[in-house]
Design a protein around this nucleic acid. Structure first.
Lengths: 164, 164
DNA sequence: GATTTTACGTCAGTCATGTTGACATATATT
DNA sequence: AATATATGTCAACATGACTGACGTAAAATC
């Protein structure tokens, strides 16, 4: 394939490399979400429910506005999903102790069970990819993905991810 | 934060690491798609249109069924988006030469222009992340994301990505 | 040459998830 | 007492997915 582009245009290979990296991310993300989607279908939940369960599970007691800030959707969009999860007993709200306007969010036992079940397939997928790729590659994965996060709130996002 | 989990449970750190890797992918993908979304809004196109323009741009002359196979959506879903793009002059169809049932897809000049414009912001984002992370990290990124692709058709997908 | 299969298009209805805009209620803050 | 904030809710709408049914032209097969 020694065509004119790769001979004459030094930027061509770079552009091609970037395009491949973009598609790789597209396909990886597609398959990365396929497992959870499959499981959640049995519960008649969608990806929006998954996100709520995931983030509430990782941040027990978080408020509605914190969740809105992470998901970057409107409160009306969230509310449909959230009230559904509450009604069906996967998430519960408690009034904030300091600020009683706040509704702090928790997974119920059933919610935690679903979170585990869904999270497991995803963790196994990632664990396999990590194992195959090796430790050095994992460090590179982290570096590059970190660099893809919007610079203006990268620190906020990272602290949210890393906070245990 | 030396709590009981990290002392007693050797799997805890690993699970935590995996959960962080999962969130990292979530946030990176969110910000990775934000740029294109912004531009396409001006054209009243959505992410579905973007995907069509992207893949047709990368595979000029591909058939409808090849596109369906990549996108993993129904032909009815595709058709709304595709016929919209054709009507508005961003994509064109030509009858297949060998098999005249096929409709081969091409970007028009206008389509190519939009593809370039949208692709550029995404390539710049990835290029910055690559530059900051360094070549070794990029190799790791590729390895891990490759491992995330569904094993059963990984080879097919990879050959599609790499075919220049 | 007739039949069947394939590639594609299309109509109709539904669902999930996002949006905007308006308004209500309880609690905190000033 | 007035205002701001956190949340909830109603209504209308857009996008992009889905299923199911049916049509048409061209290729493949019997």
């Amino acid at each position: 394939m020694t065509d004119v582009k790769s001979i004459n245009n030094p930027l061509f290979l770079r552009e091609e490399e970037l395009r491949q990296a973009i598609e790789l991310l597209f396909f990886a993300y597609r398959d990365f979400t396929a497992g959870p989607d499959e499981i959640l279908k049995d519960y008649k939940f969608g990806r929006a429910h998954h996100r709520v369960i995931h983030f509430v599970g990782r941040n027990e007691g978080m408020t509605v506005s914190e969740l809105l800030d992470i998901l970057r959707i409107t409160k009306q969009s969230l509310n449909r999903v959230l009230s559904n999860l509450i009604q069906r007993g996967f998430v519960e709200q408690r009034q904030g102790e300091e600020d009683r306007r706040q509704r702090c969010l928790y997974l119920t036992e059933e919610g935690r069970h679903l979170e585990q079940k869904v999270s497991r397939v995803q963790r196994e997928l990632v664990a396999n990819a990590f194992r195959e790729a090796g430790g050095e590659a994992v460090a590179g994965y982290r570096k590059v993905l970190t660099g893809l996060i919007d610079e203006t709130n990268r620190d906020t996002v990272l602290s949210r991810i890393l906070k245990t």
